[in-house]
Nucleic acid binder design. Structure first.
Lengths: 221, 221
DNA sequence: CGTCGGTTTGAATATACTCAAAGCCCGTGG
DNA sequence: CCACGGGCTTTGAGTATATTCAAACCGACG
C-alpha cells in the first residue's frame, strides 16, 4: 500500500481505525460519475475498472485498478464529484476513508500527503503518455501498448506466457486505446493467428512478449 | 500562487528565501525531456509550453503554463527525470526551488503538500478529459475544445472578442488536439471565413464564443 | 528586396469506422 | 444431458474522415 509507506506503526494503526471495509461482487458499481465524492478507496483484492463517459455516452477506460492501489481519491481534493465511475471486474475487497478522516490523517502525517503526490505524479505521467500515443500512433501500436500495460499491472505467468488475469472484452480494449471493438477484434485475431497471443473466455495471454513490444515500439508486425 | 495558498506570512517568507529567480527571453528551453529533474518552477510573467516527444520525434503539447502556475514539479516526486520539455513562448520570469528545499518546505508546512495534491488532481482530471475527447470526438470538436481551454487560461478581452494572448502556430494547435497542421489550417480558415474567429500574426481571437462552444459540444458547425 | 517560417490549398490515398449479419461460446434452465 | 439464449466476437463491404505530399503563397524582418 504505497500511500501509507514509511509510516510508523502507530500512524498505521490510526489510519486503520477509521477505515471501512467493503466486500463486493463482480460487476458492482462502487460509485457513479458525477456522484458527490464522499470517500477514498483502496483496493485489497480483485480488480476495478474506472471509466469516464461524455455527454453523448461515449466511454473511455481511464485505468484498471489492481490490488494495493487507490481510487476515487482525487475527487476529494478537487471539486468533490467523482469524475468517473468505478465498477468491479471480479469479486473484490476494498477499504475506504471519509473525506474528513483523510484530510485529518494527511495533516497529522505529512508523509501521507507526500506519498500521494508521488502517486498522482506517476498517474499524471502515465495519462500524458497515453495521450501522446493516441495522438500520434497507429491503432495497432496503441493496442499493443494497452496490453503491455495490463500485463505489467496484472500479469500472471502461465505455461503459455503472461496472462492478464481479469476479464477483458474487445470493447474494453477499444475504450482503452481509443478505437472501436471491431478494429480491436480484427487486430487481435490477426495476432492470434500469428501466434503472438492467445485469447479465450475474455482472458488474454501474451505468448510472444517481445513481439508485442516490437509492435508497440516500431509499429512493425 | 495556488501552491502557497493558506500559508502564514512566516511560512511564505521561508519559501521565498530559498527561491531562485529566472529571467528568460522568448523561445528559451528551460529544461529538456529526460534531464535529471533538479528544480520545481513557478511562472510569474509570460508563458511556457510543455511538450512531450516520443522515440520517433512525434511531439504533443501537454499544456501551456500561465502566470501563477507551477511546472516541472511532478518530476521531483517520481523518477527525477523531466518527462517533457519546457520552452518559453514570450519573455518570461520564473521562480524555482531545489528538490531538497521543496521537500523540506512540504514536510514543515503540510498545507503545501495538500495544495499540491489539489493542483495535481485537477491536472489529472484535465488530461483524462482530453484523453476522452481525442479518443471519441472528431478533429473539429477537439480543435474547438483546445481553443476554448486556451481562451479560458489566457484570454484577453479585446473589441473583437476574446484573444488568446500568446503566439500560437497551426502546428501547436495540431499538437494539442492530436491532428496535423494541415487539418488545423483547413478548419481554422473555414471558421475564419464564417466569421467565428480572427487570426493574424499567430494570434487567435474568438469572436463568436458561443459558436465555438456549440462546435465543441455538438460537433455541429 | 530576398529569405525564412508559417500558412493555405489541391489531389490522391490510407486508415480505421460504420453497419449488418453471422458465428461462437458459455452458462442456464428445462 | 441437451437445447436454448444472450453476450461477445468475427468478418465483409462500403465509406468517411483525416492524412500525406507537393507546391504555391503570404508576411514579417533583416
Amino acid at each position: 500500500m504505497e500511500l501509507f509507506q514509511g509510516l510508523s506503526p502507530v500512524a498505521l494503526a490510526d489510519t486503520m481505525i477509521c477505515a471501512r471495509t467493503h466486500e463486493l461482487r463482480a460487476e458492482t458499481r462502487i460509485f457513479y460519475q458525477g456522484d458527490g465524492a464522499a470517500r477514498a478507496y483502496a483496493l485489497i483484492v480483485g480488480g476495478v475498472r474506472i471509466s469516464q463517459s461524455g455527454s453523448d455516452g461515449e466511454q473511455v477506460v481511464i485505468r484498471f485498478v489492481a490490488p494495493g492501489e487507490m481510487f476515487g481519491t482525487v475527487a476529494l481534493f478537487t471539486d468533490r464529484r467523482y469524475p468517473a465511475e468505478a465498477v468491479t471486474l471480479t469479486q473484490s475487497v476494498a477499504l475506504s476513508w471519509s473525506e474528513a478522516d483523510m484530510l485529518e490523517l494527511m495533516t497529522r502525517y505529512p508523509r501521507i500527503a507526500v506519498n500521494l503526490v508521488g502517486i498522482l505524479g506517476r498517474r499524471l505521467q502515465e495519462v500524458q503518455e497515453r495521450f501522446r500515443e493516441i495522438a500520434t500512433q497507429s491503432v495497432e501500436r496503441r493496442i499493443a501498448h494497452a496490453l503491455l500495460r495490463l500485463a505489467e499491472k496484472a500479469g500472471e505467468n502461465t505455461g503459455q506466457g503472461t496472462e492478464i488475469d481479469f476479464p477483458l472484452t474487445r470493447k474494453h480494449v477499444a475504450e482503452m486505446s481509443g478505437t472501436t471493438l471491431y478494429t480491436v477484434s480484427r487486430i487481435l485475431t490477426r495476432w492470434e493467428k500469428s501466434g503472438w497471443i492467445v485469447t479465450s473466455n475474455q482472458r488474454v495471454t501474451l505468448c510472444d512478449f517481445t513481439r508485442i513490444i516490437r509492435i508497440a515500439e516500431d509499429g512493425v508486425d
